[in-house]
Design a protein around this nucleic acid. Structure first.
Lengths: 208, 208
DNA sequence: GAGCTAATGTACCAGACGGTACATTGATCG
DNA sequence: CGATCAATGTACCGTCTGGTACATTAGCTC
């Protein structure tokens, strides 16, 4: 067998990502991961040290990849309202196309974040989505079209909630309400909706 | 040992709910569940048949309980705007106080809803929250204060997303953005926010 | 209070699982 | 081209895990 340390490591990481996202941390089997690669279980221990460290590597890599993808989201209309609507919709698209990542996040939350907490590296990287959000928000406030009592993180929380839920809870929600959140017919409606909501919220005068 | 079939069964179900919500389906251990009760593993097989059927019973019972609790949510202001805001806020409270249930739902979604799909009984029971939502929405439309192009299920989706996310994703979101979604200081703000958002959205004229 | 059965307890099994000891081989460098 | 070591493969281990065979007991009925 031709040797290539980098390829072996990378393949293990890719396959492990699939299996962990599919089965959860406890549900994933080290033997299963190994069998789906061209190498053996032994290599998992050689390169990562064990199941736990492999999962940590998967989590770190997945977050790194998602940040990279988020950076590609770019809106720079002069019109802050249009920009905000577009940011919401692009965030929606982004979530819909990264469902393995959303699954890993859900799994990590089931474990009360005990693994992610050990990955200091993730904390330092700024979150591109929030940075852009802040910028648009400021422009909108300056132009007098956005209310000034809403924080960027609150807007992000709202958009994230909606987009993550679409993907993460589609099975139970879909079953209980007999709708398919995934269906191509419904997709444009759901996509437009979050933009509508955010813009309506931000352009409404404070009540109190 | 004094015998009481009903008590034994109920205790197993209660403890199993805790353990499954805590550890996930694969992570939960039958021996662990048994040890936390006053009875033995044998009884799990006697009353439920196995780990899988026990989990199904837990899921069914949890949903039944949550429907019961939802029915207690009651708003009947004459003012549809106030009622809508209150419904959003009570839904928020409801989620925050039922975090074990939210965890079970998250776990079930990690499994792509393969278990819940076998529980036909859950489908038939109407969802109290949506029924009330529909009623308020109609009153608001009639009064001319709510837009008429928004479906009840869409509003429910928005509110659910927000409320579920608070609870389900607090660990990763909290870590990455260095905020505590659980903190008593932030709670009132987060609670009021979803009401604000929903009302702003519904009282805004359609754009298109 | 004898007989019966639902309910419970004990002890164990077979296979799965994460992990490792030990052998081997391919690439690199003097 | 031989030495060296990173990289890989094989075969195995100890423990955990879901599940069960078999024995026993509490409580009910007649």
């Amino acid at each position: 067998m031709q040797r290539d340390a980098e390829r072996t490591r990378a393949e293990l990481l890719t396959v492990a990502t699939e299996v962990f996202a599919e089965e959860g941390y406890s549900g994933a089997r080290v033997d299963d991961i190994a069998e789906r690669t061209r190498t053996t279980k032994r290599m998992i221990y050689y390169y990562f040290g064990g199941k736990e460290q492999l999962y940590l590597a998967v989590l770190e890599e997945a977050y790194r990849g998602i940040r990279e993808a988020e950076r590609a989201i770019d809106v720079d209309h002069t019109d802050p309202v249009a920009a905000m609507r577009q940011l919401a919709e692009l965030t929606f698209d982004h979530h819909v196309t990264h469902d393995a990542f959303i699954r890993l996040v859900a799994i990590e939350n089931v474990h009360r974040g005990e693994f992610i907490r050990r990955l200091d590296s993730l904390r330092t990287l700024a979150q591109p989505a929030v940075t852009q959000l802040e910028e648009i928000l400021q422009r909108g406030r300056a132009a007098g079209v956005f209310r000034d009592d809403v924080q960027a993180l609150d807007v992000h929380l709202l958009i994230s909630s909606y987009c993550v839920f679409q993907v993460a809870n589609k099975y139970t929600f879909g079953y209980l309400f007999d709708v398919d959140l995934d269906s191509p017919e419904r997709r444009p409606h759901l996509r437009a909706m979050i933009g509508e909501v955010v813009v309506a919220w931000l352009t409404t005068r404070p009540t109190a």
